[in-house]
Amino acid sequence: MKCNKFYIIPFLVILLSACERAFIKENPEPNNAEVFDHLWETVDQKYSFFDDKDIDWDRAKSLYRGDAVRARNSIELFNALADLLFVLEDGHVNLSAGIDLSRNWEWYLDYPPNFNWDIIERNYLLPSEDYQISGPLHNTIIDSVGYIYYESFGNSVSTSLLDYIILKFEEEQINSLEGPVAGLIIDIRNNGGGSISNAFTIANRFAGDKTKVADWFYKNGPAHDDFTKAEEKFIEFDGDEEYKFNKPIVVLTNRSSYSSANFFASMMSFIPNVTLMGDQTGGGGGLPINNELPNGWRVRFSSTRTIDARGNNIEFGVAPDVKLDLDSADLQNGRDTMIEAAIDLIKN
């Protein structure tokens, strides 16, 4: 090759670069079967609870693939895919399209609600002169007991905010009592979860020495039992040392306490002065991840397992120490059975 012919090469390179899209292309118009198969395969390889729930995923494919392939429009296809995902019985599993959002609601709909915000607000919060909404935390003092309601772990909580609330409960100059509170109620009923870091922030504020609370396992391969080694999770006190809270704490839960709220309840159960009261949490022990389908729809599903430090799989919920439902007569009288029982437990 003579040197004076080399000038062709730069132009060839520029031409070649223009052809790159021939090698990087998505499926332009995926058919129903391709969308179904992609969803089935992605979940098959990355979902974390097939073995724990004894799910026959191959059978689910044979049950719903035909419906998906025969779907005549987006709604029918969406419904067939949603039916497939419903088999997983997991509140962390969603199919999201512009037209709809699929979700399994069974983790709480089959159980009593055990929560009435109207009663809490009208009869416990608003009548109290100590009622404040500090960031995402509704807090007050009810019958000499501190009360915090946290609606969503999606709303950020800081250690300094918790320090302030504890200070408020402990220092008579900034509350209506003549002394410190007798204990604390942390109410996470109807808290559907959010960021796990907020769960750690609150649990660490009430923890003592470093305590192991759980093992996390990440999916690291396509087989149903491909998981990493355990990642140990700990809680340890983090906050103002002068205002450590060593008095009785009751955490109120119901079946709608899900995901990060579920994990929070599990972590708090390892703190000696904490009692879980109410109904079992709804579960949700896997960290959900997102993925996309070839037609642009979005799917979300669990991709980790959490086993607490006692060996329980918290995907199925955390059992309370004191099982309690709201009493219908109490509700008629504007009383929250769980708050009343928690106050009794703390003061006696």
């Binding site: 990355k46 974390s48 990440y218 690291n220 391969g221 991709s303």
Partner: peptide
């Protein structure tokens, strides 16, 4: 990252 996570091994 790991197969089904953004966490590094």
């Amino acid at each position: 990252p790991l197969f089904a996570s953004t966490k590094f091994p």
